Simulated assay, not measured.
Amino acid sequence: MSVTAPRGFAAAGVAAGLKSTGKPDVAVVVNRGPHKVGTAVFTSNRAKANPILWSQQAVADGVVEAVVLNSGGANCFTGTFGFQTTHQTAEKAGELLGVSPGDVLVCSTGLIGTGDEVFRTKVLDGTTAAIGSLSDDGGEDAARAIMTTDSRPKNAVVSRGGWTIGGMAKGAGMLAPGLATMLVVITTDAVLDRDAADAALRSATRTSFDRLDSDGCMSTNDQVTLMVSGASGVVPDTDEFADALAELCRDLAEQLQGDAEGASHDISIEVVGAASEDDAVVVGRSVARNNLFKAAIFGNDPNWGRVLAAIGTTDATFDPYDVDVSFNGVRVCSAGGPDRPREDVDLTPRATHILIDLKSGDAAATILTNDLTHEYVHENSAYSS
């Protein structure tokens, strides 16, 4: 049931006509529990959409009663009109729910630079319809309503001793930190204060969504929201909650990776033997963003030279002539030189594992990415048509 698996939440997804396909495009998630705690993390792109600008202000007091999300239009670079549209969306939701508009977050996804009176009317009408359709099992409908180029909804649920975390996500392209082009709503019925919720969310996103780097492109609309209802009445151990939240976020991040636009390989780049975790992340990301490497994986070519060339552009601590590289369990490079024959590597499975041993320390990190395919280029060349 996704975001409605925890107690105290209701959700809905409706079709408001923002998509030409007639599919659902406006979602609402509402916290009906005794606690209204909320926190969020946002894109680090300096170019931020109007919903991001609004939600950053609204979440500052740590109270979130509801989130309204639309697909079919990013409402980004739409000027004063666009910000007013976001503001009116929060006001409409606040009016219908009997809460302060300042406690309503807004998220949008879709094409940048488009927005007019028709768009505004559809968003507001969709908000009205979604609130009128709220139900305790509406999480799946909400997850479908936020999809754009996604081929399927992404949901996850983790339960522990008497409390539950639920989440939904969308995203299939522009997947790169900070965050990814994604909208994520996470709910829990555990009892947490704002500081504990915020710390757990930032820790979880750091090792999940922030390490998903599908195509190196950062969105203007990324937002991950955590809402706390406290409806279970259970105060969890903070470490246990943080672990459970990290598990849920990793699950959603892997679902986003698996649905990346046009991808034929899901690539996990594991970097070990790093002098620091930051070094491991930098090295892994350098490979994930290397188009020559990604094209080689698409062609089932274990071209380890492209891995070494990519990591050599970083300032991480290591000796490039003492690095080992393995593809799907076969070490093809040892100490910066050839090892087993490339013919020993099978890259036909979708799941692809790259292991890079820097031999410079004990730190490690894994970056998730995808290959570069004809389908990815085609889909993004026709995105606005």
Rank of each mutant, 00 (worst) to 15 (best):
P6G: 04
A10N: 13
A16K: 05
L18N: 08
P24Q: 03
R32G: 11
T43K: 03
A60K: 12
S71K: 06
G73H: 02
A90W: 00
K92Q: 14
E95N: 14
S100E: 13
S100H: 09
L105C: 02
G110N: 09
G115E: 03
E117N: 14
R120P: 05
K122A: 10
T127L: 11
G132T: 05
G132L: 03
D136Q: 11
A142R: 00
K154D: 00
N155L: 15
T164L: 01
T164N: 02
A169M: 14
A169I: 09
K170E: 00
A172D: 02
P177N: 04
T188Y: 00
A200H: 09
S203N: 12
R206P: 01
S208N: 05
F209S: 00
D210T: 05
G216N: 06
M218T: 13
T238C: 13
D239F: 05
F241T: 00
E247P: 08
E247H: 12
E247S: 10
L248I: 10
L252N: 00
D266A: 12
S268N: 08
V272R: 15
V272Y: 08
A274S: 06
A275Q: 12
D278F: 02
D279K: 02
G284V: 06
W304R: 03
L308S: 07
I311E: 01
A316G: 12
D322R: 15
D324N: 15
N328R: 05
V332T: 13
P338Q: 14
R342S: 15
L355S: 09
S360Q: 08
A364T: 11
T373N: 08
H378M: 12
A382V: 13
